[in-house]
Design a protein around this nucleic acid. Structure first.
Lengths: 340, 340
DNA sequence: TCGGGAGTTGTAAGCACTTACACTCCTCGC
DNA sequence: GCGAGGAGTGTAAGTGCTTACAACTCCCGA
């Protein structure tokens, strides 16, 4: 069943059928009805390949993320998919892992499928070593590239992110206002946003004239976020005689590791120890006590990023290259931050 | 840059170029090298649309799930994507929500994109009202359909699932062996696997000659699994004077709601109340006490389902139509089940 | 020396669509 | 009454690939 069959049934030329399919206004009402009826009765669907050949687009967008089972990335992928669908675009998902070479390969694969744009979800795609970002610049020569939670200055590259610096700055300052002096900062990546968060922490400490003990800035490796591992890592830190009265983590799972540690050691949270996470996952409500966290407005980021791409597609020259949203601190039981 | 350009650079015909691209053996070594070099130096990538037109396949598989931000489905989508990629297939993701009409529409969209197969992730795609499954049977007329965590008997429809009946049966029996008599069963859907789980519970109760109090079989509506809502729902149940000494939930989040309720009410878990969840999410380790749950072998399911599709594609007539894996009970602090 | 087959290669016909361009009506203003 | 112009339509030329089929080149044995 192809466009010729439909044209025969409807008694018109294939051009007219094509026009009806593509909502071209230059078709008489009479013929439009005839063609619609023919399509309806035969259950005809235009062949996307032939269509893609002519139009050189298949209304499909490549969505890359390191690991779609990570709760944060999974949510992002979900919101993006929903927004794309509203705009009649489909999502070609590519889970790349964290390895640089694999990321490159996945991107090439997406490009070879002639996607209309690529969305890179997660700050791990922009490396602090700028040479490593060439694969993004290169892809941007073919299609628009949108970064979520990262930024990169390059032609045809767009960024949508959250102000992680300020959020971490503010949460740190609130800890300090509550009398906390020895704050343990936990992080588990050196991604674009991780660096900005850490910057926020350091800046707030400096602004309040507090000494930054580098031993209290603690990196917990691995992307496989097991609470148990985190707990062990904190424990081994304490075994070295390090003390702290607050924990700020760049991720909720890290913070839950801290809660588990405190419980095991008999430290009362929040009375003797403040703990704050980041991302405001559902799990902040599952743990006990419930976890103060930062909502970084993922739904807004995703809606905006898709809208921006649509704007790019329509050749709107006033499309913003970079948009920064502000995050919101959600207070729960692990802190008493109420006064700003 | 197209196949004609490459043929000119290499000094051969387009047929030869095409043969090299498709690893056709009928090419002389000399020409193969020349063509490879031309492709390499020009950075040429075959146009997938033109290719799709000829071959009528684009090595892309439609992956449908209700909500890819649901942790269980997110993991499934991830494993599927990884397995498909290994086999050089891409995943076209479609998040359909739980509405029947939307599911149908999403499926039509995928079919119109000429995917090579469709994977339905999650038991909510098979309805107990069999008429509603016609859209699956219909899709199977065009491409193979694979169900994960559900089963449906129809031509060209394949199923990969876990034995949720037996797992729930066994966990219920273990509760009974530990002296539990009034077991609250919590569930939040009437999907294929939800029904099988409940069957398992009922069967175990009956097999042990225990009375099933229908008031203790408690449905908690909504797919938006908020722990707080669950807690409230259990609370209102207890306010009616209903008592229980065990909670078996069809989902970890429901079980965590029960933990929260117990904590609020001062009931000691597991001393006075056993609680077990299902799915064995990471969150079973986040809550306190940690949650006994059922691991339903998602990685195995996903690996197997992709392998099965590949087998279908190769026209292997010995492809299994349905495969059932067995689940595993993972004991944690909310129960003391150790004796089998 | 020549026929025949194996190994290569190229030509050309699809595949199913879009769209520029030319053509036919018809209407409307003068 | 006639020409201009707009609306609607169809023809045909792409779009970039696959592949059947024909043709061509060797090389070997008769």
């Amino acid at each position: 069943m192809n466009i010729y069959d439909i044209s025969k049934i409807a008694g018109v030329s294939i051009a007219t059928v094509s026009r009806v399919i593509n909502n071209n206004p230059n078709v008489s009402e009479k013929n439009r009805v005839k063609v619609m009826a023919a399509i309806e009765e035969s259950g005809y669907t235009p062949n996307v390949f032939a269509r893609g050949l002519g139009l050189n687009t298949m209304k499909t967008i490549g969505v890359m993320c390191a690991d779609s089972s990570d709760p944060y990335l999974a949510q992002a992928v979900y919101y993006i998919e929903q927004n794309l669908r509203k705009n009649n675009y489909d999502s070609l998902l590519s889970c790349t892992g964290y390895d640089h070479e694999t990321k490159k390969k996945c991107m090439d694969l997406l490009l070879s499928k002639r996607v209309d744009a690529i969305i890179l979800v997660g700050s791990n795609y922009v490396e602090s070593d700028d040479r490593m970002n060439d694969y993004i610049r290169n892809a941007a020569k073919s299609v628009p590239v949108m970064l979520i939670n990262a930024a990169l200055n390059a032609p045809n590259v767009y960024s949508t992110l959250c102000d992680d610096f300020s959020a971490t700055y503010e949460i740190t300052e609130r800890f300090i206002k509550q009398g906390k002096r020895e704050i343990l900062y936990l992080y588990n990546s050196n991604s674009y946003s991780a660096i900005r968060k850490l910057d926020g922490f350091r800046s707030a400490m400096k602004a309040n004239k507090l000494h930054i003990d580098e031993k209290l800035i603690h990196f917990i490796s691995s992307h496989s976020k097991s609470v148990h591992e985190v707990k062990q890592s904190i424990k081994s830190l304490c075994d070295k005689g390090i003390t702290f009265d607050g924990v700020i983590a760049s991720d909720d799972v890290l913070a839950i590791g801290a809660i588990k540690y405190a419980k095991e050691t008999g430290i009362s949270v929040p009375d003797n120890l403040f703990i704050a996470g980041y991302n405001n996952f559902d799990i902040t409500e599952y743990c006990d006590p419930t976890l103060t966290s930062v909502d970084n407005k993922l739904p807004s980021l995703c809606t905006h990023c898709v809208a921006t791409l649509m704007s790019v597609f329509s050749n709107d020259t006033s499309t913003p290259k970079q948009t920064i949203f502000s995050a919101e601190i959600i207070e729960r039981q692990t802190t008493k931050l109420n006064q700003k």
